[in-house]
Design a protein around this nucleic acid. Sequence first.
DNA 1: CGAGTGCTTGAGATCCGTCAATATCAGTGG
DNA 2: CCACTGATATTGACGGATCTCAAGCACTCG
Lengths: 248, 248
Amino acid sequence: MNDLSSPLHSLKVTCTNCSLRELCLPIGLNRDEMAQLDAVIRQSRRFKRGEYLFRTGDGFRSLYAVRTGYFKTCVSSRDGREQATGFYMSGELMGLDGISANTHGCDAIALEDSDVCELPFSRMESLGRDIPSLQHHFFRLMSREIVRDQSVMLLLGNMKAEERLAAFLLNLSQRLASRGFAANDFILRMSREEIGSFLGLKLETVSRTLSKFQQQGWIRVDHKHIQLLRPEELKALVAGCSQANSAG
Amino acid sequence: MNDLSSPLHSLKVTCTNCSLRELCLPIGLNRDEMAQLDAVIRQSRRFKRGEYLFRTGDGFRSLYAVRTGYFKTCVSSRDGREQATGFYMSGELMGLDGISANTHGCDAIALEDSDVCELPFSRMESLGRDIPSLQHHFFRLMSREIVRDQSVMLLLGNMKAEERLAAFLLNLSQRLASRGFAANDFILRMSREEIGSFLGLKLETVSRTLSKFQQQGWIRVDHKHIQLLRPEELKALVAGCSQANSAG
DNA sequence: CGAGTGCTTGAGATCCGTCAATATCAGTGG
DNA sequence: CCACTGATATTGACGGATCTCAAGCACTCG
């Protein structure tokens, strides 16, 4: 632990000192266990906006936790149709779909300049055997992804355009709030087209629906800058629908 | 192992002698490991058609593997809308969504008289620590569920009614075939309404689309009895769309 | 045999997608 | 700094896929 000799000491980001400790993998680990985790995790890799973290078909080696920035994941059909399957912000884990076939099942793309921690999966697996609470947390994270996916299915299968968009905005709001950002005033990191791809709508419908919300005085839209003026109205729209999470 | 003394001996179904060995949890375990697994798994519980295996909000204790019969899982919103999230047949695992919050996140309902093996999760978790290949297989199963969910999102977000139904029929066909049943001649276990709930369509649309397929000579529909006459035409419909699995 | 449930089919309504025109923004290079 | 270009967003008009409502049919089960 006392690697003060290294000049890089103060630059090295570890789970132990990461501000995402409470949102990310190390929940519930003690000092010693966290040190073991630190030893396994590869330090941040930077990605520029638009760069691929991994692509469908790439060999699966690692999971990736967002440290800063934003990513999207999407699956696409051969004829070019794309379905965004999630948006990921700090502390959220990507790549869980790759375990099953040892191959990534979707693309992961940086929505802005971002960096991630790489978690080599086989080492995480064996570490899980030594640290039961880590293993359990891992299962919980995978299960949470499944729960999230179920609520996206409810959204795509049952909800109308307005309900989908309201659910989407509220979900972003809640996740930003839990990271200490303003809940009702934020910048969208994705285009209208990407929102539409996630919500099963065309970009024109997304745009129109945002305008409609604005006309009703529920939100303020200034390009990617969104303010929720009457979040309770949005909540009323999705009331009854178990809210759909974008990620985490 | 030699409990021949027990009169129940010949009735007791274990993983070791289960015909689903190759589809279910024990893939890749040796004799000894399988015996340990057998010791943890609770024997079949029977469910009548329409009975709940678990409900949203029930405390999470166990996962359940279908032994015989069929189940569906569904999430529902407070205002009554229901989204079927999957159909499960023999060897497939239900309840993975419950791990994250220690509470089941959906309902699981028998589509006909069925029985399941109960896998107490905390014992599975510790067994996984002793048997790395079991732990790994568990991760793979959870990941497979995530991959499946992603393809359902693609289906719900991007595909038209005909494509959805074609993908659904082909998926059923393939899963039945891998269980040794006829691929092109089978009985639907679910109602039109349940199919619609899964595919994000109304039952009338499901019915109309089946009729259309029949008129084109691609399938034969006799109530719940379905024959695929020209599966290649159905495949052409979903060509380009990575096929969406119902479960497994 | 009768009631009830599930299924099929039709007609009209609605929501959203498509196409198109215009506006605005971000990045580049003069 | 400004003009230019391509990407992104807004808005309108129209059309089409699916939903809604409704009627009738066909099984199932007591």
